Amino acid sequence: MTDLTPERSTEGVRLQKVLSGAGVASRRVAENYIVDGRVRVNGEVVTELGRRIDPETDLVDVDGTAIQLDTSKRYVVLNKPTGVVSTMKDEHGRPDLRRFTQDWEERLFNVGRLDAETSGLLLLTNDGALAHVLAHPSFGVTKVYIAKVRGKVTGQTVATLTHGIELEDGPISADRARVIDVSGGDGDDATSLVELTLHSGRNRIVRRMMAEVGHPVIDLVRRQFGPLRLGSLPVGRARELTTVEQGALLTLSRGHDTSAEEAQDQETE
């Protein structure tokens, strides 16, 4: 495709080259996206093939999905095993997250925490700005957990969880709750699988909620964090986010801002 559009400036990098470098599409396909009006720069639709941008300061999205232009940023999802603490270096010598980051030369750190007895999805990144937003309590990113609990959880208990209960640090309610399975009948050996969706980042909140309604947690797994899903990722394995997952995460976080100091209050579940 011949570029007949005059350039606004000789500074910066051509938009189609930036999109190609970010892994969105080949340069030719990226040009088609631009001509079709599917690309925005700083919220403005751009249809000029000669448009140049500054990848360090300009915000780009395609079809409403944010694009990470800084290729040095890494986003990794880990299926954390039980028995591992959510820190990169544990001062007490317990198993920590370092073993899961050896495949990446960048220095990664965890966004939020899962307690040692909880397994499941944990996001690792070197993107401090995104991590600050996602970990900040006021942002309220949604998390989905599967809890194996003692006893037979009834519909009335599910209603109690969603309507709200009072804990020592204030009221709390699940965004959604449902019973997936019940085994062991009605006896003392009965257990239930409960799916809970929460946006709270309070300490060990799922365990405390289930204990309050009389169903202590036996096993707890986080299956989803915002738009990220654990899927079939084996326990103890880590992988980089796909371009689609990365875009969904960035789209979720853009428009929210918080300081690093305010973001220190991360959740521990």
Rank of each mutant, 00 (worst) to 15 (best):
V141G: 04
H199E: 02
L123W: 12
A147V: 01
A147T: 00
D127P: 09
V144H: 05
N203D: 06
N203W: 00
G151Q: 02
S86R: 04
T125M: 15
H132D: 15
N110A: 15
A135L: 04
E91V: 12
V182Q: 07
L193F: 08
V149H: 05
L198A: 12
E166F: 07
T162H: 01
R113C: 08
W104K: 04
V111D: 14
G128H: 00
A116F: 00
D90G: 05
L122M: 13
L114T: 12
N79E: 14
A177F: 03
V194M: 10
S138H: 12
R74G: 02
D127M: 14
L122S: 06
M88L: 15
G155R: 03
G120K: 02
R107N: 05
P137W: 02
R113G: 01
T142E: 11
F100R: 05
L161N: 11
L78P: 08
V76E: 12
K73E: 05
P137N: 14
S183F: 06
Q156S: 09
V182A: 12
R176G: 10
G140R: 04
E105G: 03
D127R: 00
S86V: 03
L121E: 07
G93K: 03
K89M: 06
A135D: 12
A129R: 12
A159H: 12
E168M: 13
R74C: 14
Q156Y: 05
I180F: 00
R176D: 14
G83S: 08
D169E: 13
V133M: 09
D169F: 01
A159W: 03
E91Q: 05
D169C: 13
S192D: 10
D115E: 05
A129W: 02
D70M: 10
F109G: 02
S119N: 11
T118G: 03
A190R: 08
R178N: 09
T118L: 15
V149L: 07
D169W: 08
V158S: 13
Q102I: 02
T82L: 07
T82D: 04
G187C: 05
E117C: 08
L161A: 12
K148G: 05
R99P: 02
L134E: 07
T118V: 14
R99F: 14
I205L: 01
Y75A: 14
P137C: 07
T160L: 12
N79M: 08
R204E: 07
N203Q: 10
A174L: 08
G112L: 09
I172C: 00
D186H: 07
D70R: 11
R98F: 13
D127Y: 12
D169P: 11
V77G: 09
L69P: 06
R178A: 12
R204M: 06
L193Y: 06
V133A: 05
S173F: 03
A177I: 01
D188C: 07
D115V: 13
H136L: 01
D96E: 10
S183K: 12
N79W: 09
G128Y: 00
Q102F: 03
